[in-house]
């Protein structure tokens, strides 16, 4: 492809402008809320502590995220129409999962039975998965449709959930367990992130996408994942719950920053391309053009 192109009028990829902080708020708060539900369910069933307060926190975060979206849509009073296309729309499925999670979550808070807590945790996990699939289905945004974006969204939701539980449970007898859970989840997240970036760079992506990710990469990898892993490990070994709180806070802050960047900063459109340039004024076609894209440049820039 010939990269010497002067593109006029929205030919090259451009940053999408239709989903702003309100849409990002759903991925930030809703994803973390789903993670809280999943982690609280798993830990409370295993350790036998009362999960009700943390379940309420997870549901509130999920509800806050969906409220953010409600403020974003163009016709908010028709919002119930979102339930009409369960056959193929992951946005519809996300809405149903949220509805069921609210139902089972409120029942679990009221009744406190393990099956209801487990069902709420499973629905929290499904909520994060549905969010990841919403992004994956958007073929117009190369950064989202890439197959390796899904594990990043899934792992960050769970890591944030564990981080929030580590913060909230720091003064409980069971504080070590969410800190221990943070270690594999942050490790999974950082591996998924690096694999995602490497694949984006290799497969090609809009320049703006790679630039936006490059800006947050070091801080996310080190401050958001590797440092929390060390802090959580030291917290458990040295019996220092305050370090677990710090690890949790770093994990959550880094996850939220990354998701905001993913939705608002790195979301560049596909742009346009010609496989060959048409015959015009001479007898042959010209080389193909794909303005605004970059290949295999991540590591060298």
């Amino acid at each position: 492809m010939n990269h010497s192109v002067r593109a006029v009028d929205r030919i090259a990829p451009r940053r999408q402008g239709n989903w702003d902080w309100r849409a990002a708020g759903n991925f930030v708060a809703g994803g973390a809320g789903g993670g809280v539900l999943a982690c609280v369910a798993a830990l409370s069933i295993g350790l036998g502590f009362d999960p009700r307060l943390l379940l309420a926190v997870g549901l509130a975060m999920m509800g806050f995220g969906l409220t953010c979206v409600w403020f974003e849509i163009g016709r908010p009073w028709r919002a119930m129409n979102v339930f009409r296309h369960v056959g193929s729309s992951w946005m519809t499925r996300e809405a149903y999962v949220a509805l069921f999670a609210m139902g089972t979550g409120l029942l679990a808070i009221g009744l406190g039975t393990r099956p209801l807590v487990a069902a709420t945790g499973l629905l929290g996990l499904l909520f994060i998965y549905a969010q990841a699939r919403i992004l994956a289905a958007n073929k117009g945004i190369p950064a989202w449709r890439h197959g390796r974006c899904l594990p990043v969204v899934l792992s960050t939701g769970l890591a944030e959930g564990a981080g929030l539980v580590a913060c909230a449970g720091a003064w409980a007898a069971w504080w070590r367990y969410p800190a221990m859970l943070l270690v594999p989840l942050c490790a999974w997240r950082v591996i998924a992130w690096r694999r995602y970036l490497a694949a984006l760079a290799a497969d090609g992506a809009p320049v703006g996408t790679l630039t936006a990710f490059r800006r947050i990469n070091s801080l996310f990898v080190w401050g958001g994942n590797l440092v929390p892993v060390v802090l959580a490990g030291v917290a458990v070994l040295a019996d220092a719950p305050i370090l677990a709180v710090l690890a949790g806070m770093l994990t959550v802050a880094a996850g939220w920053q990354m998701k905001y960047s993913l939705v608002c900063r790195a979301a560049f459109t596909q742009g346009f391309a010609l496989p060959k340039q048409p015959v015009r004024g001479n007898s042959r076609t010209g080389p193909g053009v794909k303005p605004g894209w970059q290949w295999n440049r991540w590591l060298t820039d």
């Binding site: 999408q16 849509i73 919002a79 117009g140």
Partner: peptide, 22 residues
């Protein structure tokens, strides 16, 4: 009459063909 203006279709379109004005 049904569209809620969520803009998901705009994100899904690789041809930058859809618009919303509020």
């Amino acid at each position: 009459d049904i569209c809620i203006g969520c803009a998901n279709c705009i994100m899904a379109c690789p041809y930058d063909a859809r618009s919303i004005i509020h």
